[in-house]
Design a protein around this nucleic acid. Structure first.
Lengths: 167, 167
DNA sequence: TATTGTTATACTCTATAACTATA
DNA sequence: TATAGTTATAGAGTATAACAATA
């Protein structure tokens, strides 16, 4: 940050998309290391985050939609996570077509661990911001991302009607 | 945006990487439309942005490094932009290995046009933020992205010594 | 010896299409 | 008819390796 002698401000980053891409690239570089224990890397991590812990439903389609990835890719990701013993496929009692993706105990433990490492990566990525600015950035990022949810309506809303408190 | 009845806050986005990915995905969706006239799409746009307008030097390697893409990909991108008449490859007088990527008049005009359309896309992507928050977000995004510049040192710094005012 | 740029090749990732089962 | 999930195949995108020219 402090203007070092060798780098007079070389027009830095003046483009929104470039800044966004640069930030994501740096995040993914760190995330790949943090998630190297997980099959699927950062993607596998996000699937694990969005998997059900028992209180909410998470079909493969729901997760795929939420993450913006194809259903066919979800099959492979869940396959690998299941082989690693981190998640389980459970038939949805309300819809026999669907499979809920539920974290195992090992999955919960692994998620806790990787989550901590991801948090460390985030700190590094946002390292050039002050503590206050970093908080503000996270808040604005989430607010901006929520703008147009990938899923027009959550599958939970559709299914959850006759299953009070969760699906 | 406004809380519609059918969508009670479905735990929204609680993950940094997920929010970042979601935002980039929405941006790229719009950017693909905005840059459909350009060979290479959003990537081609960024190359065009980073190409030289005469005042600064821009080797292919410099641009590639700045954008975080491979040199081999740069060749194809510049090939296509050159075929479209938007940029020119010019031998660098200071380094006969290097080729400067310089925008043509048509390239400048196209860039102006696409830049305007990109700005519109950004407004849509940040549409859920207030005007003040959008400004703040852009500022923080750039500040965060500049944190660790992809290029440790710009090639311009190395070459520019004996060419006062530009390379 | 290292770097710029090019080309060809191989690989990874992702999407497409077709199918079954269920709604 | 539409959707969830799986599988196989094809495609886009990307990286790897080798090369020539120059530093």
């Amino acid at each position: 940050m402090s203007e070092t002698a060798g780098e007079r401000a070389t027009e830095t980053v003046d483009d929104f998309g470039q800044a966004l891409g640069s930030l994501l690239r740096r995040y993914l570089d760190g995330a790949r290391d943090a998630a190297d224990a997980l099959p699927g890397g950062p993607r596998g991590f996000q699937v694990l985050v969005n998997a059900s812990s028992g209180t909410d439903c998470s079909n493969q389609a729901t997760i795929a939609h939420r993450l913006g990835i194809d259903r066919t890719v979800m099959t492979y990701l869940v396959d690998d996570l299941e082989k690693a013993g981190l998640v389980e496929r459970r038939p949805d009692p309300a819809d026999r077509r669907a499979r809920q993706v539920v974290r195992t105990a090992a999955g919960e433990a692994t998620l806790d661990d990787v989550r901590r490492r991801m948090a460390a990566v985030e700190d590094v990525v946002l390292g050039s911001l002050s503590a206050d600015d970093a908080v503000a950035f996270r808040r604005l990022l989430v607010a901006a991302a929520v703008g147009a949810p990938p899923t027009g309506h959550s599958m939970c809303d559709v299914v959850g009607d006759d299953l009070a408190g969760g699906c």
